[in-house]
Amino acid sequence: MALIEIEDLEVTFGSGGRVVQALRNVSLSVCEEESFGIVGESGSGKSTVLRALCGLAPVTGGRMRIAGKAVPSPRDPEFYRRVQMVFQDPYASLHPRHTIDRVLSEPLAIHGFDRREQRVEQALDEVGLGAGFRFRYPHQLSGGQRQRVAIARALILEPSVILLDEPTSALDASIQAEVLNLLDRLRAERGLTYVLVSHDLAVVSHMCDRLVVMQSGEVVEHLTREALKDHVTKNDYTSNLLTASEGFTRDPAPQR
């Protein structure tokens, strides 16, 4: 059974004469313990899907269900205990004047968890940082370490769904590999469900079994990892993305 179901989702920004329709009729479903990918260029609305699910974007139409139940609006604490998000930029998503301990304890306090100290230490261990990082500030950490803290913050409420918005695009290639391995291991250990948004086809095909390709607010193609490997794509835009992700070629590529 599908854990996350999104049907005909519409998101509209602005009002009056300047209306931007960021999402049009987006439908997708994500199964339990699956890793699902969303690929597209900037402005295609791929991040907006995640933000709409979390209640961070103005939804103007469509239905969203999690485990068969409609997502409440505004989102209740129970929703956030089940669904957590990791944002793109580890430099912007951690409070610069809060220690790591405070960053990780806050969600525990909000949701009334017990054994907070142990949980914080355990969460740091799980993302490979160790308790020694507990009383540092974000500026004392590298980009990869900060993204690990952001992942620990999402994991500390023991959610079943993690929404990943470009989790590695601000990181160097070698650090990206470490973070992707960490995400892979956590999913295997805890049976998590991932929805991963990225502009990098290689990252998505590495992490996800199924994916959708988005362009200007619409889903243009549903794909599986196998189809991507064999270059079986129906849509021109997807094949363009595939060619582009393989590096520069001197021969003129087909124009869009």
Binding site: S174, A177, E178, N181, A202, H206
Partner: peptide
Amino acid sequence: RGLLNCLPTITGDSRPLPVL
């Protein structure tokens, strides 16, 4: 070599990715 190997590829399937 490490930089070349640690990139995920569409065709390859190495899990976990080699870390530098």
